[in-house]
Design a protein around this nucleic acid. Structure first.
Lengths: 235, 235
DNA sequence: CGAATAGTGTCTATAAGACAATATGCC
DNA sequence: GGCATATTGTCTTATAGACACTATTCG
């Protein structure tokens, strides 16, 4: 509550707060998560998710905290950032109540400077998860985030946020393959994504030893078009 | 992060933490939200969402905090409880960084004892929101929760959680009408919900001055069946 | 030309929605 | 029987997916 009472009238909540980030990218068709060294000596595993605390001097919003942590590890800008869940309980930290707000970020796989601390680890596909061992409860946070991704990929334009600035329709198919472990046929990809409201034709082609592929770009502002819900025509 | 370091090595985050609940029910076809008096004298409006702080002695999990707050206002058990989002920033509370975890609860509209502080206010439908004025930033939290509800109602079994223990298919249609402001035809409701994996036929009927309607019950464990995504047959 | 991948045409499957027809209780 | 609502049958529409066919580039 935010009743603006003087500090003395209400006990402050004393939980430790952190912001954890599950940053995912697709590298050579493999889904990968960004990790950082686990700094606590007693940690069971030596890699962990990027995490940090709110810095009241730097952060105005929770999202800023997430972005700031991310920026410490990679200069790549996330193409998508979304809150996944907040975990809070008295068990996960021996000091008492601890609370973490988990964000999930998608990065386009384009060259960007990573910190030496950063390490990208494969996570397998949704069909066949092969999660790396992570310190603390980070493996389960990672799993929640991947589940969210795999759900939303099926009915949103999220696949496009894992691709570079320009991409072909086949690239989209590879996103499905790399994340879900399976992909709809090209016909379906076309029906869904080759749509003026979703992408724009750049007019350019990608050449190989075959018929050139049309390069598309994600349509500016469209955040989150949904497919396959109740029909609009419903009275 | 939860590195179990001694308190002195890392600054603790000092944000105020609260848990706010958007509890919704359907009363005579109207969607309503549970409110409590806004206790702060400077609040712009005199009703607010139920909210409270983590009590380390009573709560092991964030969800417990939410349930505990709810129980202070009504003895009805929520049929559904889900975290919506966590809002954190430095603006919403004049004392500094403040953070709130927002839950949304669905209640079956059955007789239950409410506290005298409790008041149920109409919120309109998703098509035509008529949100009550609430103190603090609670109106915007309410709006987010209703948006979540209106989305999920369209592709999950959530409508069933706003209904009493037994219900007819027409009742389900009324849930759509009361929440979305529009409803699919009975044929679609039937196709979707009259399914052995979703509900069970109680064998009983509801009688009126017309053909009696079959009474169904929500099938036990099924949490959250999804409709209308990628087809299972996808290779 | 042939290999390889891009893109199209067309049919089927699934599920939503429109609408008409039928069923069954109460009065 | 007549009213009112429940339930079913059937057709249409929207979209996913299967699959075969055509197109275009490079070597």
């Amino acid at each position: 509550m935010r009743e603006n009472l003087p500090n003395t009238t209400l006990p402050l909540s004393t939980a430790l707060i952190s912001v954890d980030i599950v940053a995912l990218r697709l590298s050579n068709g493999r889904l990968q998560v960004l990790t950082t060294p686990a700094r606590h000596p007693k940690a069971q595993h030596d890699r962990a998710l990027p995490a940090g605390r709110i810095d009241p001097d730097k952060d105005e919003q929770l999202e800023h905290t997430a972005c700031r942590q991310l920026k410490l590890l990679t200069l790549a800008e996330p193409s998508w950032l979304e809150q996944v869940e907040t975990i809070g309980n008295s068990m996960r930290d021996s000091r008492g109540w601890s609370l973490t707000v988990v964000y999930f970020a998608l990065l386009r796989n384009e060259p960007a400077l990573d910190s030496p601390d950063a390490q990208w680890l494969d996570v397998g596909t949704c069909c066949k998860l092969q999660l790396p061992d992570l310190a603390y409860d980070h493996q389960s946070l990672l799993q929640s985030a991947i589940e969210r991704l795999c759900n939303k990929i099926q009915y949103t334009t999220l696949p496009l946020y894992l691709l570079p600035d320009t991409f072909t329709l086949s690239d989209i198919k590879e996103v499905f393959q790399g994340t879900l472990g399976k992909a709809p046929p090209m016909r379906s990809i076309r029906n869904r994504f080759a749509d003026e409201t979703v992408v724009t034709d750049t007019g350019e082609k990608r050449y190989g030893s075959n018929r050139p592929a049309t390069l598309y770009r994600l349509k500016g502002d469209n955040r989150h078009r949904l497919f396959n819900r109740l029909y609009e025509s419903t009275q």
